[in-house]
């Protein structure tokens, strides 16, 4: 039996990747199950998905706590979540990154396969959707499953969900990523701090309100405290602003869903701590003073 944990962001299709891997295993005569971690996560927020593969019927229904393989669809997640959680020294990682394996620090020194899946996806699919490409890297790095089976699994799952033609394209992306994957060993110096939770007793709660704005061990809580939650790492593209073309109409300021474009009277200032890179500002700018570029 082997177990895989996928680290992705909502909307990146980690669940579909997990399913396609299970389907690929099935093509090779194995049993496979795939399932997501249930939560209230939106697009862009860190999410988990799992695949469990075995020669025999699988009766284990639990979440996966000590995976043999960990697949990371976005290397910026390494800074945000503890991707090394539950990994043993013999575990193997597969990472979408522009870096080399030796340049990555996953918190445990293990065999690591790396591919720039975002570039592959942009090239083959025309969109930064990396869930198919990363499976090519998985096949190359782990050798658990043949690339042909991965292609088959993708045709099956993706084809069913988004149409045969796109299924085929995604299979191509996996193959392209397979060819480009580089395998090495990552570093293991990182110590992830476990984020504290705010668990007050009833006596500590203010009377008549759930929370007031307060600084706690776990950071800000209460009204307005979301300002502590930096969403900038969700971005794939970022706005580049040309002050000379800007006429200070404030449309970008108004339309920004995050409210992270500030009017500084002489110029607009973009706050990359929060910008999710949606591109509305660039699309709506009447002077074409904003352009979206790969972050």
């Amino acid at each position: 039996m082997y177990e895989v944990r996928f680290h992705g962001r909502g909307g990146q299709g980690a669940v579909m990747a997990a399913q396609a891997l299970a389907s690929a295993a099935h093509i090779e005569g194995n049993y496979g199950v795939a399932f997501p971690f249930f939560g209230a996560e939106r697009r862009g927020a860190p999410v988990l998905a799992f695949t469990r593969v075995d020669k025999d019927r699988i009766y284990t229904k639990t979440q996966i706590y000590e995976p043999d393989y960990v697949v990371i669809l976005d290397d910026r997640l390494i800074e945000l979540v503890n991707v090394a959680q539950g990994l043993k020294e013999i575990a193997v990682a597969v990472v979408n990154s522009q870096k080399k394996p030796e340049e990555l620090d996953l918190g445990i020194p293990i065999k690591t396969g790396v591919v720039d899946a975002t570039s592959v996806a942009l090239e083959v699919l025309g969109a930064p959707i990396t869930n198919s490409s990363i499976l090519g890297a998985f096949a190359k790095t782990t050798g658990e499953v043949k690339i042909e089976s991965i292609e088959g699994g993708i045709r099956d799952i993706f084809g069913h969900r988004i149409g045969e033609e796109l299924g085929e394209k995604n299979a191509k992306a996996a193959r392209a990523a397979y060819e480009k994957t580089e395998v090495g060993t990552c570093r293991g110096e990182r110590k992830m701090e476990v984020k504290k939770q705010w668990l007050p007793t009833y006596k500590e709660l203010p009377l008549g309100a759930a929370t007031r704005p307060m600084q706690t061990d776990a950071g800000l809580v209460g009204p307005g405290s979301f300002i502590d939650n930096k969403t900038g790492s969700w971005r794939t593209f970022k706005p580049v602003y040309d002050k000379d073309k800007c006429n200070m109409c404030r449309f970008c300021w108004f339309y920004c869903p995050e409210g992270c474009i500030y009017d500084k009277k002489e110029e607009m200032v973009f706050d990359f701590d929060y910008c999710k890179g949606c591109g509305i500002c660039a699309n709506e700018c009447p002077k074409e003073a904003i352009e979206m570029v790969r972050d």
């Binding site: 909307g11 697009r43 862009g44 979301f226 300002i227 869903p257 009017d263 949606c278």
Partner: peptide
């Protein structure tokens, strides 16, 4: 639009999907 206050009573850091239309309305409201 020029007269709207800069202060946000609905702050950044919320977790809507990128490009969500709803927070545009909520910020303004």
């Amino acid at each position: 639009m020029k007269d709207l206050p800069d202060e946000e009573l609905f702050t950044a850091g919320h977790t809507a999907c990128p490009g969500c239309g709803c927070p545009i309305m909520v910020r303004a409201a």
